[in-house]
């Protein structure tokens, strides 16, 4: 297809002038500035898999100084071949997000607010409560006298966004504690 500039030529002689200006090496400062500062130049590339739906698209995280500075589709990934939807394309903002909570919190009975607590305190307190609830609620045998060794006083839901290795470990913990009320996203 032949490219014509007829629409413009009809109006004015601006076209010719424009060309001349370009050829004279007119100062293209914004362009050269942009070109020189590709913000991912020299960044470390780490591959990841999109955390949203289960298509499993590949994403590359560009990072500098330990901070993720850009995320975009992994062009080598055979499923998405570099493409991403709105959510996948926004991964950067999940990682770099001021609204993320970054410290364990505790809300006491009847309290109207959270307070920040240490990991050590939070996990130790949870551990105590788990043991207490388990020991008090443990069912060794059912009404027929069969050994059942289960904990019905604690329930668990969740994990569909965890890694496989975390999921396995999590279920191992919950089952070792005797939980039977173990459910997650697949049920809803």
């Amino acid at each position: 297809m032949k490219v014509t500039r007829r629409d413009f030529i009809k109006i004015s002689g601006a076209t010719a002038t424009g060309l001349v200006v370009s050829q004279l090496g007119f100062d293209l400062s914004p362009v050269s500035a942009y070109a020189a500062t590709l913000r991912i130049k020299g960044a470390k590339e780490t591959t990841t898999i999109c955390p949203y739906c289960a298509v499993g698209c590949g994403i590359i995280c560009h990072s500098k100084g330990g901070k993720v500075i850009n995320t975009e589709g992994d062009p080598d990934h055979p499923i998405n071949q570099g493409a991403l939807c709105a959510k996948g394309a926004a991964l950067y903002q999940w990682v770099n997000n001021d609204s993320r909570l970054t410290t364990p919190l505790y809300r006491a009975p009847g309290s109207t607010s959270w307070k920040s607590v240490s990991w050590n305190w939070a996990l130790a307190e949870i551990a105590k409560r788990v043991k207490d609830a388990r020991d008090k609620g443990f069912i060794k045998t059912n009404t027929k006298g069969q050994v059942v060794n289960r904990t019905e006083s604690i329930a668990h839901v969740g994990s569909a966004a965890l890694d496989n290795e975390e999921c396995w470990t999590l279920q191992a913990m919950m089952r070792a504690l005797g939980l039977v009320y173990i459910e997650h996203q697949a049920r809803i």
């Binding site: 990841t48 995280c61 999940w94 809300r107």
Partner: peptide
């Protein structure tokens, strides 16, 4: 009277491991 513990976790891109797609 419920006590609540909130534990803040890493996002996917901040840890290593596998996930299984559909």
């Amino acid at each position: 009277q419920t006590e609540v513990f909130f534990l803040p976790c890493a996002v996917s891109a901040e840890k290593e491991g596998s996930i299984t797609n559909s």
